[in-house]
Design a protein around this nucleic acid. Structure first.
Length: 304
DNA sequence: AAAGAGAGCAACCGCCCGGGT
DNA sequence: CACCCGGGCGGTTGCTCTCTT
């Protein structure tokens, strides 16, 4: 139960990895790939369990890992994603290039949890409070990039009940750039297509257990074709994020209803719309950012 | 300077799931 | 259909480092 054949062998070393072991593992995987993890220890000459090798590689030795402490932006993103996804650390980590589920988990358990429990507002800045950049420059590929330009942020996105972490939401450019539809890194992404969202207004459902927000105009009809729905319980890979029919308001899924979003190749018009590159994760994050309220009462947005 | 407390983090454990037989 | 095996994930542990007294 839970034991793997490769781990039952005697002479399997446990505990911290030595530099020599790391070196062996790096050399082997660099040359051959990991293949079957259970065979890696034998082929690499390690007295380790295959699972241990896999963990060591994924959490520490992988060349694409970003070492060092989390930035404030990353912390805020973790908080926001945790609100939708819960303790699904691997799913959260997919939105943080170079970070592992273990790192995210540790961050949450050691740092963020305490900050939130102690109620130290401002300890983790709101996503929308970070500096913005003019444009993402693909040639630089800087991970230090801030957020999409938002010179005139839509006041409708200011959350009264959750100002401690989210005043108005703009997606981290790194998330938009680095992930393709499968959550994999995609450095070729360029926001050539834009989705123009109308003004955000709340969509009240019969039961506040399912809180849905409409972006503009009237409430979406239950089977309006121009609706984006995201099910946080569904595997991301199976969410095509295409416009599709919405279920009835009593559906348990969290819904982001977008009425008639227009998809164009025109650059953003910050005065009128909320703009975002056409990326699945963006929809998910936006969905997260604007899902507010509780069973006892749906919180409304406030205006300046 | 030493000891204790607390924080941070790497790694293990146990479970679940999917594929193969 | 049942079983086995490997991969993956979340929870937990325990070691190490840093800070405080």
């Amino acid at each position: 139960m839970g034991h793997h054949s490769c781990c039952n062998k005697q002479k399997v070393k446990k505990g911290l990895w030595s530099p020599e072991e790391d070196d062996k593992l790096i050399k082997y995987i660099s040359a051959n790939g990991h293949g079957s993890w259970s065979s890696v220890p034998r082929l690499a000459g390690l007295q380790r369990c295959g699972k241990s090798c896999r963990l060591r590689w994924i959490n520490y030795l992988r060349p694409d890992l970003k070492r060092g402490s989390f930035s404030s932006q990353e912390e805020a993103l973790v908080i926001e994603l945790h609100r939708i996804l819960g303790n699904r650390w691997s799913r959260i980590a997919k939105h943080l290039p170079g970070r592992t589920d273990n790192e995210v988990k540790n961050l949450w358990n050691t740092s963020i949890k305490k900050k939130l429990l102690s109620g130290t507002d401002g300890a983790v800045p709101a996503l929308g409070t970070f500096p913005v950049i003019d444009q993402y420059n693909p040639s630089t590929g800087s991970d230090e990039a801030g957020f999409l330009p938002l010179n005139d942020p839509n006041p409708n996105l200011i959350l009264k009940s959750q100002q401690y972490q989210l005043q108005y939401f703009t997606p981290p450019i790194t998330m938009l750039r680095d992930l393709d539809h499968h959550g994999e890194q995609n450095n070729n992404f360029r926001p050539s297509t834009w989705v123009h969202f109308p003004t955000l207004i709340p969509y009240s459902s019969d039961s506040c257990s399912s809180i849905t927000w409409s972006l503009g105009y009237d409430h979406a009809q239950p089977h309006d074709d121009s609706v984006v729905l995201i099910d946080p319980n569904q595997e991301e890979d199976h969410q095509n994020f295409s416009l599709r029919s919405a279920p009835a308001p009593h559906d348990d899924r969290i819904g982001l209803i977008i009425n008639n979003p227009s998809i164009t190749d025109q650059p953003p018009d910050n005065n009128a719309t909320i703009l975002a590159p056409e990326m699945p994760e963006l929809y998910e994050i936006i969905n997260c950012g604007i899902r507010v309220g509780s069973k006892s009462g749906c919180t409304s947005f406030t205006r300046n």
